[in-house]
Structure formats: C-alpha cells, structure tokens
C-alpha cells in the first residue's frame, strides 16, 4: 500500500464530501428560512402542511429519504434513472446520484434549520416589534432592521451544531455510490486489508470540523459585539 496514493485518493473523496457539504448548506439555509415562514404562516393549511412535512422529514432517517428520492423518476415517471439523467442533461448516472443525494440532504437540513429559525424568530420579545411599530416602521423594516440581527445572534450556536453534524452525515451518500471520502476509504480497506485508510478519513473529518469550530467561535464573537462580555 502506497501511503501517499491512498492520501491522494482520500483527498479526492473529501473533495466530493466538501462539495456535498457546501451545496447542501447553500440550498438548505435559504430554504429553511422559507420553511420557517411557511410554518409560521397565518394561512393555517400552509402552516399545517409545513409542520407535517417537517415532522415526517425529521422523524425519518436521512438514508431512507435519499433512497426515496432516487426512486422518484422510476416509480412516478416510469423512466429509468439512466434515461432520466440524459433527459435532464446530466452526462452520467453518478452525477444524477449526486443530485438525488443533494436534494435529500437539502430538504432534510432545511427542515432542521426551519425549526431553529422559527425558534429564533419567536424568541424575539414582542416589545421589539412594538417599538418598531410605534416608530412607524413597516413590517419589512422591522424584520430586516430590528429583528433579523437578533435572530442571527440567537441561532449561531444551534446552527453550528447542525453544520458540524452535516460534515459527518455526508458519509451516508456512499449508500447511493457517491464517492465521498468514506466510500473511498472502504475501497482501500477492502483492497489492502488494512484499517488505516478509515482512520485517515477520520483525521480529515476531525481537521475540518476543528476548522469549522474555530470559524463559528469567531463568528459568534463577531455577531455578539453588542453584548456585555
């Protein structure tokens, strides 16, 4: 076993991991905010529907959700995944698998984020809204100029938890043959009959989540500028 070639392949796998991680965050955070607004909507059917979706998604396993998404084209549209990939302009089935996983991950994390956002928004004292109202501000101005910053302050810590969990959740993508780092590591384990590649993969995760921890710590300090320390 050549150490450096194993590390090189793991790096490639980690690249896929990072791509899934980054894209999931990019989609799920704004989507989560929309979900949160739906869930708090005064239009009851929408609010109920959203709460139900959140319940189902948070109440079932992410792996199952990935598998279900994969079966949607073939079951609902009666098109084999291979043809479906061609139809939507993807050049390979593996790219399609990645897209499926990304969809499942984004929906799943959007639901978790939605709950965090909703909690953060509801946590803002009513007096803050009223202070904005008596000063003649519009609802939009109150949200963006009064409430939002305080919400962000309140949710950095729970968001950082989810983000670090997401780093490790990406390993589930291997079930749909996405060649992220753990899948690559398993290939090496089987090929060379040693466990060390899995340990190396662990180091990648550890280093990355360490980086994120530092980043969030910094962010939290930055956003909490207006609090007594």
């Amino acid at each position: 076993m050549n150490f450096w070639s194993v590390i090189y392949d793991l790096c490639q796998g980690f690249g896929v991991t990072l791509r899934l991680f980054g894209l999931t965050l990019l989609i799920s955070i704004p989507l989560g905010l929309i979900f949160a607004f739906f869930s708090m909507s005064k239009f009851k059917p929408l609010s109920w529907l959203m709460k139900m979706v959140i319940w189902v998604i948070r109440g079932t396993h992410l792996l199952l959700q990935c598998v279900i998404v994969t079966f949607i084209p073939s079951v609902l549209l009666k098109i084999p995944n291979k043809d479906f990939a061609a139809m939507i302009g993807l050049n390979s089935i593996s790219t399609l698998q990645f897209v499926f996983v990304l969809i499942a991950f984004s929906l799943n994390y959007a639901c978790y984020f939605a709950v965090i956002f909703e909690g953060g928004i509801k946590n803002i004292p009513k007096g803050q809204y009223e202070a904005g109202q008596v000063l003649g501000l519009t609802k939009r101005q109150i949200f963006f100029h009064v409430v939002l910053m305080q919400v962000i302050r309140k949710i950095v810590a729970p968001i950082s938890n989810e983000v670090i969990t997401l780093v490790k959740d990406t390993a589930l993508a291997r079930a749909l043959s996405v060649t992220e780092i753990i899948l690559v590591a398993y290939e090496k384990v089987n090929k060379y009959a040693v466990l060390s590649p899995l340990l190396y993969a662990g180091v990648f995760y550890l280093a990355f989540s360490g980086l994120l921890t530092i980043l969030f710590h910094f962010l939290e300090k930055k956003i909490g500028y207006y609090e007594v320390t």
Binding site: P125, E130, A131, V146, Y226, E227
Partner: peptide, 9 residues
C-alpha cells in the same frame, strides 16, 4: 415603554 425596548444591536 416600561421596559425600554431599545434595539440591543
């Protein structure tokens, strides 16, 4: 207001 409701940020 009784409890000021200043904008903390």
């Amino acid at each position: 207001f009784q409890n000021f409701n200043l904008f903390p940020q």
